[in-house]
Design a protein around this nucleic acid. Structure first.
Length: 475
RNA sequence: GCGCCCUUCGUCUAUCGGUUAGGACGCCAGGUUUUCAUCCUGGUAAGAGGGGUUCGACUCCCCUAGGGCGUACCA
């Protein structure tokens, strides 16, 4: 373990939104940098202008911020560093480590087809590798290719995957500078990581084979390569590659489903990494426990049930005031948010806060929490669902009337007096508490399930409670 | 096709040659309870297959099968 603080980086390409896999990669980089007192840099890999867009960059930044994964220093745009990349490419040509290739796209296609037809790997055949400069067609466009070794093997020492050997025979002279003068990803990554002083690369497993190609560039430049860690990918619930259908959604979508950032963080941290049997972890614990040695090699599957379980835990253990504020703040993004969003007056907010202890242990997501708030702000007469109607219709005769009578007589409207009053009703009528409570719950909330009855009465208040009960009286 | 990687309960994982293979989620059963939920208790369920190495393999090696990644003038 090095004693110098590590520099990690998260380097997404802005071709889509920050997806779940990218979020975890960022999380691991972030945890690692925090663990060892280093830094996590952020670089946007936008060398492919065709596929990059600004909205995606904003989404990535927002996603990271929401997850609480801050980066150090300014965001680096890879595209803006193109001149530097060109400089290195030319430098490699000067040094005889790279060369200009004048093969046309059509020519390359043809070459690949021919090799494929012959049952051989479709690799560049090195046709311009050793040709004298005098052969170059004047003024014709060219790309720059690295001179990859054709003998021996390139060895990658990966912190997660171990020692991985690639036969050089299989690595061809890949392009580092396109004919339009722009660098390819392979060159840009190496130059940027080097220039940015990155000491530890943590990225998806899908880059493992690229690591060998990048090593060739490091070797050609005589640079030391950063340490590597290729973390396993995340698959959908069916084990197949993550697609839209699975949840390869932007992080913003998880927010809109009502997940808490700390829940997502905790869940993501346990995908491919573990610290013994620990499941619920605070950020500080994660930081102090995280290490690359403990990262697994196999891909893992996304499991929404577990994510929900964690989310429910974090909702239940949230501070009532903070949760109320969060709910109000998140409401605009939630499908059921309208219920809460419409209730912004201070009295309504106070009601929400008062009801929160009962509400929060019944919700696995903020969306569910918002939906469960409906009874608080419902207009009279309440819209009753089927079960609620049934409960009121089949209630023992006189239960609601008796409750109204007893409740009206209360001088104090508190949890204690309310409970005592309802218990008296049940005793006086010779009914089990449930027989009294259920119809009342239905009348008060329009549903068969809700927070505790006394809570509901307390939060709704005397006037509203009695009015809702009156509404259900046959007349 | 070629190269590389991966493979423990349904899922996430623990185990770093010797365990009744542990935990969590889910599911099932029971308890608490005015409903639901929470909470508590218990249960269900795993080393892909085949060869080795070893006194002893989930653990080390090989093969097979399955899955994944890469093989672009994408990143």
């Amino acid at each position: 373990m090095s004693t110098i603080p590590p520099i990690t980086r998260f380097a997404p390409s802005p071709t889509g939104y920050l997806h779940i896999g990218g979020a975890r990669t960022a999380l691991f980089n972030w945890l690692y940098s925090k663990r060892f007192g280093g830094k996590m840099l952020l670089r946007i890999e936008d060398t492919d202008l065709e596929r990059s867009n600004d909205a995606a960059v904003v989404a990535i930044l927002d996603g990271l911020t929401w997850l609480g994964l801050n980066w150090d220093g300014a965001v680096v745009s890879q595209f803006e560093r193109a001149p530097r990349h060109r400089e290195i490419a030319e430098q490699l040509v000067e040094a005889g480590k790279a060369y200009r290739c004048y093969a046309t796209p059509a020519e390359l296609d043809e070459m690949r087809e021919a090799l494929k037809a012959a049952g051989k790997p479709p690799r560049y055949d090195g046709r311009w590798r050793d040709r004298p400069a005098s052969d170059a067609p004047v003024g014709a466009p060219y790309s720059i290719r690295i001179k990859a070794p054709s003998q021996g093997e390139t060895i990658i020492d990966d912190a997660v995957q171990g020692l991985v050997k690639f036969p050089n025979f299989d690595l061809d002279d890949f392009i580092i500078l396109r004919s339009d003068g722009n660098p390819t990803y392979m060159l840009a990554v190496v130059v940027d990581d080097h220039d940015m002083g990155v000491t530890q690369i943590i990225r998806g497993d899908d880059h493992l084979t690229n690591a060998a190609r990048q090593q060739i560039i490091y070797d050609a430049m005589g640079w030391d390569a950063p340490k590597l860690a290729h973390i396993p990918l995340i698959h959908g619930a069916d084990g197949a590659k993550l697609s839209k259908r699975h949840g390869a959604l932007g992080i913003d979508a998880y927010r809109a489903m009502g997940y808490l950032p700390q829940a997502l963080r905790n869940y993501l941290s346990r995908l491919g990494w573990s610290h013994g049997d620990d499941e619920i972890m605070s950020l500080d614990q994660m930081i102090s426990w995280f290490d690359i040695q403990d990262v697994n090699r196999g891909a893992s599957r996304l499991d929404f049930a577990k994510l929900e379980a964690l989310n429910g835990h974090y909702i239940r253990t949230s501070d009532d005031l903070e949760l109320t504020d969060l709910l109000l703040e998140t409401a605009p993004f939630l499908p059921s948010g309208g219920v809460v969003e419409a209730a912004r007056s201070s009295t309504e907010r106070a009601m929400l806060l008062k009801a929160m202890p009962g509400l929060k242990q019944r919700a696995k997501t903020l969306e569910e929490l918002a939906a469960n708030c409906a009874y608080l702000f419902a207009a009279r007469p309440l819209l009753m669902d089927e079960k609620a109607k049934e409960l009121v219709a089949t209630a023992d005769a006189g239960v609601i009337e008796a409750a109204i009578l007893k409740l009206s007589a209360l001088s104090d409207w508190t949890l204690e007096t309310l409970e005592a009053a309802i218990r008296e009703v049940s005793e006086e009528m010779g009914l089990k508490l449930g027989k009294v409570a259920q119809p009342l719950r239905a009348a008060l909330t329009g549903r068969a399930t809700s927070p505790g009855l006394f809570d509901v009465l307390d939060v709704l208040g005397r006037k509203e409670s009695l009015a809702r009960l009156q509404d259900q009286l046959p007349n």
